[in-house]
Amino acid sequence: MELWIPITIAAAFLQNLRSAAQKHLKAVMGTTGATFVRFGFGLPFALFFLATLHLVAGYRIPAPNAAFLFWVGVGAFGQIGATFLLIHLFSHRNFAVGTAYSRTEPAQTALFALIFFGERVTGGTLAAIAISVFGVMLISVAHMHMSWRNLVASIFARNALIGLASGTLFGIAAVAYRAASLALGGPNFMMQAAVTLVWTISLQTLVMAGWMVWKDRAEIGRIAKAWKVALFTGFVGATASFGWFMAMTLQQAAVVKALAQVEMLFTFAASVFFFKEKINRIETAGCLLIVAGILILLVA
């Protein structure tokens, strides 16, 4: 098994935990605060990963260059915008369609990788992406009244457009992070990922903190009151990002993001086995399509 596969699955599991924590935080603070927590409370852990690789493992820290800094900036701001839009959807009672469209990220990532770097994926990989994305979208609309009219109308709904924009920005960020990490040129994929993570999350923390000081200082107090959940969110978020960056240094971003749809299976496993919730036939079909897409991806 190629190393990027278990790294991606682990990152998807951690991201599932981070998303659950952010949904909880959204109930006690605004969208800005819930977005900041992912970055600000993740920074200490990102620095710890970098220090461990340098001081314990003995890897040199590569010096940043112009290309690296450019792509870090693109990825950092893209991810801030994508996260803000996705968390904003949590405020809406009917955010399922929007969330579904945010999951078009793997397909959009493949498109941006082709546009920016000429990276091409195989026909099998494209089929895997299409099947898994369709499975995720089925799950997200499973509790709607299914009709062609509803499906067509949902495409142009406000939440759908927000979700699509979120997926676009996540796709751009994924491609940018791979480009940034590769621009360092060594010493290995772990250190390249760690340096990319530290620079990215530092920039995001600085920008988000500055915004709150300028526009919404009360949000800082709400974050302080929820520091325990915020710290957990930062830990799993930073660890997941470290995993994504390592995987995307080893493999094309679109392929990594396609396998990352396994996160939905973790979500459903928790729903069924821990919360004893029942899933309907459409949700079951969506899960099977995700599994089929992942299997095609792994053998393509």
Score class of each variant (00 low, 15 high):
135 G>S: 05
83 T>Y: 01
65 N>D: 14
67 A>D: 15
174 A>C: 05
219 E>I: 04
111 L>E: 01
217 R>Y: 00
253 A>T: 09
194 A>Q: 07
259 L>K: 06
111 L>Y: 03
101 Y>F: 11
59 Y>G: 04
207 V>L: 11
99 T>W: 00
49 F>E: 00
281 R>F: 10
172 I>L: 15
69 L>H: 01
138 L>I: 07
6 P>T: 07
242 F>H: 04
131 I>W: 01
277 E>F: 05
262 V>D: 03
124 G>K: 04
138 L>E: 13
105 E>T: 12
45 F>Q: 06
14 L>C: 12
19 S>V: 14
240 A>K: 00
150 N>T: 12
108 Q>Y: 08
41 F>K: 10
23 K>F: 03
132 S>N: 09
195 V>Q: 00
298 L>S: 02
14 L>F: 14
142 A>Q: 14
51 A>F: 13
199 W>D: 00
111 L>A: 10
290 I>Q: 01
2 E>A: 14
269 A>L: 14
209 A>P: 03
174 A>T: 10
86 L>D: 09
176 A>T: 02
35 T>V: 04
128 A>L: 08
186 G>E: 12
76 A>R: 06
152 V>Q: 13
225 K>F: 07
144 M>E: 15
44 P>F: 01
38 R>N: 07
232 F>K: 06
194 A>P: 08
299 V>Y: 03
146 M>C: 05
224 A>N: 06
32 T>W: 07
